[in-house]
Design a protein around this nucleic acid. Structure first.
Length: 258
DNA sequence: ATGCCTGTCTGGGACAGA
């Protein structure tokens, strides 16, 4: 079973790329982020036509997450994280698909830092950590995938060079501490675990020639609880997607479960 | 040193992204 995560950076303008990717890769479950569209304008018919059931949590212009399942209807478990009813951002959606629990995550970027956006990122991260702790031991297989907006280390397998990003929210000690706190619950970082010595970037900025220079970051992650991790066979990044016409600035990342 | 691109909403320019 293939599970993928893809920050599409606007599902309306990305629809041709998304549909061809679904056709070519045929993931069983695809979690999307940065829909940048409202619930009413989500392209349900096109996705249905590609053979996927879907649930989505949209927001006009910003954010937005979805869960797609091939030949199945994801059963929604939760939209939004617990413990902040005033949070208006569409950044978390959770579903059950054939008994597997799937979370689609769009963690706040947090720039500029320091400042209120960075504070919001760290607060949102703590709410995710609290919720993830509940999920980890729930007895089912759980995967939490998406754009975490965290570069885990300065190592070249996570970032081409940290120099230009030293002040960036994605590399800050507080951000990385939260990431480690989450992993210490026991989650398996699938890409890193199966490719510990390779550069597995998932994001390349549109400008400064960063794609042609392969100046990327690893910020899209797939986390598995112990029960799901026993089935982990392969993981990868569909890097070629970043080189196509009108691409997202992210490439899809995926895992294969036995 | 810098959103230098790109998408969105809008209707031209601002905001957000990382």
């Amino acid at each position: 079973m293939k599970i993928a995560t893809f920050n599409v950076n606007g599902i309306t303008s990305r629809l041709p790329r998304l549909l061809e990717w679904l056709e070519e890769v045929s993931p069983d479950i695809a979690c999307l982020q940065e829909l940048k569209t409202s619930d009413a304008t989500f392209p349900q018919l096109a996705i249905q036509g590609a053979g996927y059931g879907a649930i989505w949590h949209g927001q006009k212009g910003f954010n937005g997450v979805a869960i797609l399942a091939k030949g199945a209807d994801p059963q929604e478990r939760r939209r939004g994280l617990p413990n902040d009813p005033d949070d208006t951002h569409s950044r978390y959606l959770e579903a059950s698909v054939n008994g597997l629990i799937v979370g689609s995550i769009y963690l706040p970027n947090g720039n500029p830092q320091p400042g209120p956006k960075f504070d919001y990122k760290l607060a949102w991260f703590q709410r995710l950590i609290d919720h993830a702790a509940q999920l980890y031991d729930c007895g089912d297989e759980v995967v939490l995938v998406g754009d975490y907006n965290v570069v885990p280390t300065d190592n070249v397998h996570d970032i081409y060079s940290p120099r230009s990003y030293l002040a960036d929210a994605l590399l800050q000690p507080e951000t990385r501490a939260a990431w480690r706190q989450l992993l210490e619950q026991g989650w398996t970082d699938a890409i890193h675990t199966l490719h510990p010595d390779a550069a597995m970037y998932t994001y390349w900025d549109y400008f400064r020639n960063r794609w042609p220079r392969d100046a990327g970051l690893r910020i899209d992650h797939l986390l598995l609880n112990a029960k799901a991790a026993t089935r982990l066979k392969e993981a990868g990044v569909d890097k070629a997607m970043r080189g196509r016409e009108k691409p997202s600035d992210h490439a899809p990342a995926w895992i294969l479960l036995a």
